[in-house]
Design a protein around this nucleic acid. Structure first.
Lengths: 167, 167
DNA sequence: GATGCATTGTTGAACTTTCAAATCACACTA
DNA sequence: TAGTGTGATTTGAAAGTTCAACAATGCATC
């Protein structure tokens, strides 16, 4: 009932249109990527991301906490997912120093990823990269970074420096 | 093993960077919006969208199929969600002509939405609209539309014309 | 006007994610 | 060195989504 009229409450037509377009993107794109991955390799986006994160690190391993930050999954979500991947033989858990547990990608895991990646990249191209001019893609990326920076201020470093490691 | 080298397989550094930025957006934004809605009104994004869809229509009702298209939810997902909203008293189901079932928003449902909307819009402003220059937002919206058009060619009309109705 | 068929919507089970509590290992203190 | 605290990870149950099968209804065709 009591509303603050001091600030403009609603959005202009253009803002609304662009916002709805963004919402449409948020609603359609993850399912599209998930569908491709699931169909072609049986992985979901999160699991793919976990494997990719491990594979990208020279050591092929990462502490659960670092991996959790990298994938932006809650510790619990990660733990469940790693459990599945471990059961499939693509990851091994080994406890490291301190209280840490390291997730190691196995050879089978690397093979799985190498097998899954090309089709995934192809899909990313088809849906996004090839759809936009270089300038549009640049603008999209820049805008995305600004919004993400607002939501999650710590992230910019995280990816930029790739500073994480095992424990 | 056998790979097609005929097309450029991987992405350039800039493309990769922008792609990762977009992925970060896809991963952080829905949870952020969900969290705000859940915290402030107990609804999740999908349920909010369902109520908003009904409320926006002059008649306050919509066939399940139309609503399913509008919210981009599978029939099953919608059916479950409407079940919850009905149990909460915010929606009523009435069977219309043909095989159709109409979802009607109730007075309580409208109140709920009116109560939830301002904070949600405020959050959208805070995370997106206020973070970008008008040009950036325009560019973001335009790029999003292009990608969505590729994923879901039918959509452009759907929102543009608001042609759907009950049955 | 009966039969087959397509469309619409629901249901229940399987799976994934979330949420809160429990576990475990180490560090610190008395 | 027993006791307490803190941080990392796991666990199991609740909530939500997906998936596949199942009504229910109208339409076409014979």
């Amino acid at each position: 009932m009591a509303e603050q009229t001091s600030e403009p409450l609603w959005l202009t037509d253009e803002q609304l249109r662009d916002w709805q377009s963004l919402m449409a993107l948020l609603m359609t794109m993850p399912p599209a990527l998930d569908a491709q991955l699931k169909r072609d390799s049986g992985l979901n986006s999160f699991e793919y991301h976990v494997l990719a994160g491990l594979n990208d690190h020279p050591s092929g391993r990462l502490g659960m906490s670092e991996l959790s930050a990298y994938t932006r999954g809650s510790p619990s979500r990660l733990s469940h997912a790693v459990g599945r991947l471990e059961r499939a033989g693509w990851i091994e858990r080994r406890s490291g120093e301190a209280r840490c547990v390291n997730a190691h990608i196995t050879e089978a895991g690397r093979r799985k990823l190498v097998e899954a990646a090309p089709a995934h990249v192809r899909e990313v191209r088809r849906l996004v990269v090839d759809r936009l001019t270089p300038e549009q893609l640049t603008a999209l990326g820049a805008a995305a970074r600004l919004v993400v920076a607002q939501i999650e201020p710590t992230w910019v470093d995280a990816i930029a420096h790739r500073t994480g490691g095992d424990c």
